[in-house]
Amino acid sequence: MLGEPTRLELLWLMTRGPQTVTELVNAVGASRTSVSQHLAKLRHAGVVDVLREGRTAHYSLRGGHVERLVREGLNHADHVVSGEQPHQ
């Protein structure tokens, strides 16, 4: 589930707070259909929540544990790619 680059980018964007589909589409440069399908998979996996306000849906990470997982996972990947030593 987390091995797909677009999903990782969507998750990273949601570490900043709730995002609408339009905001996510504009940020990742993918089609609305593609972003919606990725969000549906993330919701099904239990890592993303949706709050509907009228016709607008706001997607967010499901709690602080998921946010920390996303941040730490991407920070770890950055260390591996950059060669920076891991934290103790």
Rank of each mutant, 00 (worst) to 15 (best):
H87M: 08
N75P: 00
A45S: 14
N75K: 06
E72S: 07
D78F: 07
V66I: 12
P5S: 07
V70S: 05
T33D: 14
D49G: 03
L10A: 10
A30T: 07
L39I: 06
G83N: 04
T22E: 12
K41E: 15
R7A: 06
E9S: 08
T15D: 01
L13V: 03
V21D: 09
L8R: 14
L10D: 00
G17Y: 02
N26H: 09
L74N: 01
Q85T: 12
R55P: 03
K41Q: 13
E4S: 12
E9R: 13
M1W: 00
E53Y: 08
V66D: 05
L8S: 02
E84V: 11
V21I: 14
R16E: 05
P18T: 09
P5A: 09
P18K: 11
K41D: 15
E67G: 01
G29C: 07
E72N: 05
V48I: 14
M1K: 05
E84T: 10
N75L: 11
D49F: 03
P86I: 09
V35S: 06
E72R: 10
T22K: 11
T15C: 01
R7Q: 14
T15I: 08
G63D: 08
L11R: 02
V70F: 00
E23P: 01
R62K: 14
V80A: 09
V21F: 01
E23T: 10
G83S: 07
Q85F: 03
A40M: 07
L13W: 03
H44I: 13
R52T: 15
G54Q: 09
